[in-house]
Amino acid sequence: MWKWLHPYANPETTYHLSDRVIPWFGWLSGSLLTIGLVWALLFAPADYQQGDSFRIFYLHVPAASLSMGIYLGMAIAALCGMVWQLKLSDAAVAALAPVGAVFTAIALFTGAAWGKPMWGTWWVWDARLTSELVLLFLYLGVIAINNAFEDKQMAGKAASIIALVGVINLPIIKYSVEWWNTLHQGATVSKLGKPAMSLEMFWPFVVCFLGFAFFVATVTCIRFKTEILLRNSSRPWVKNLMLEQAK
């Protein structure tokens, strides 16, 4: 059943695949982000209550939801790595963690800069904000462990454990606004059915979100290539590739 997947467990095939998709993802991300951000900043209507400060939404919400999406992807890679002991999974975990950390940081920072004018405070220790901060620490933990061990295999194992254990945090972030009373409001776009915003505000969000998603894909592929090279540096295919590129 999984036979068709086997070639992709081969580092060489995967390396070349990522190499080939990077320019596509890069261009898609660049054009979608340009259109989306111009639309969001110049043409989307201002909110009836929050005025133009609402435009932070177009950066804050994609960053926050991608920070959770990236973590889910990283945890799935970690699970595959632990069960099937694929070295590629360790490379994927190591490649995803810094990207996720940056997106979490953006979500927290833009949230603070939005909270100050609207809520009246940069930060409050409510369940949503605190659990998102925990997510940042989980990412930093995975990065630190990957750098702490000389032996890449040991590092991969330890990082995978942290990544998997931290999955518990994802539903907590997602449902914190429903389970407890928080200062943070409920979900706007991930609601089942209609998003809680008018469509002329929603479409620029979709374009921005896709743009950021392809950005994640692009950067992850670049980092994935690096991690594959570092883990296979003495393989003949890497040597041949380097010699070819040196010409």
């Binding site: 009836y48 809520w119 009246g120 409001q185 809680a196």
Partner: peptide, 18 residues
Amino acid sequence: SEVLAKHDENYMPQEISD
């Protein structure tokens, strides 16, 4: 000692709100 505003998850332009 501190008053914070909590807004809801609904966003809409002025005209629709009216």
